[in-house]
Design a protein around this nucleic acid. Sequence first.
DNA 1: TAGCAGGAAAATC
DNA 2: GATTTTCCTGCT
Length: 304
Amino acid sequence: MEFVLGLESPFSLDYTLESGQVFRWENRGEWWYGVLPMGVIKVKQEADSIRCVSSSESMDGAFVRSYFRLDEQLEPILASIMKDSTMASAVQRFYGLRLIRQEFWECLASFLLATNANIPRIKKMVSSVCSTFGDPTEFEGLKYFRFPPPERLAEAQVAELRECGLGYRAPFLRRVAESVSSGAVDGGEIELKNYEQAHSALLKVFSGEKLLLGVGPKVADCVLLYSCGKDDAFPIDVWVARELADSYPRLVDPSVLKKLSREHGGKLTYREYADLSRAARGYFGPYSGYAQQYLYMYGRVRDQ
DNA sequence: TAGCAGGAAAATC
DNA sequence: GATTTTCCTGCT
């Protein structure tokens, strides 16, 4: 079905889809093509609206509005995070960038694969898992593969997953698929908790039991922010860590600051990550996740 | 708690 | 063409 959505609040389709939140969108000409759990959709930004063509009736205006969170007013959110000149520049540079509301399982699995990889590589791994295990679907005469359900990957051979180029991530993905498939990990339950509770629930670090192998604090924060509605989550990857060290040194512990300088390129320990995340969340407030997303994009263009 | 391996592709030199 | 980096986590 085809439809047009009017935009009442700032939105940049390009910045949003290029900001590393999602891995199943592809830019072809003036359209963005996305493979989502319900089917395939293409979207194009126009003057004061976005035009959409989707493969199923269930992907309608209400769905797209909810997916891109277009009912929420962006200005007050941005106003709340612009506490200094760095964030003001980042917001100005990527004005209209929004957080997307993703499906829990696909988000968790995708960011599990994201360790030690760059975005093109992550897209390749996800795409390979989909074409190997996902259900085919057709759109405009072309074949696409949906992201496989957790049950499907729970019964996959680790060797088959490895063939998708996942390397050491293969056994992790299978374990996580089992956990989600069995209901041991439930996105809906996590959504009801506050950030702190949700984060530790996802990590299952209590009693030293690691249910979700391959999911550390950073991946957990990505999942909470992108799929569980925790706008105050603040994932810290290498880019955000550098940007914090460069532009927000007072939020960073001196010893960690030294560690993060370009020469050392050190990695954060679990405790250092927790401390830095808490400091950033305290500073930026309830919409820290938006601050993180703008900072990520800003850090990447500044480095080039 | 610090150090290291893990795997492969992209970015950089 | 070789080296470094890449939206990190688990194990020792």
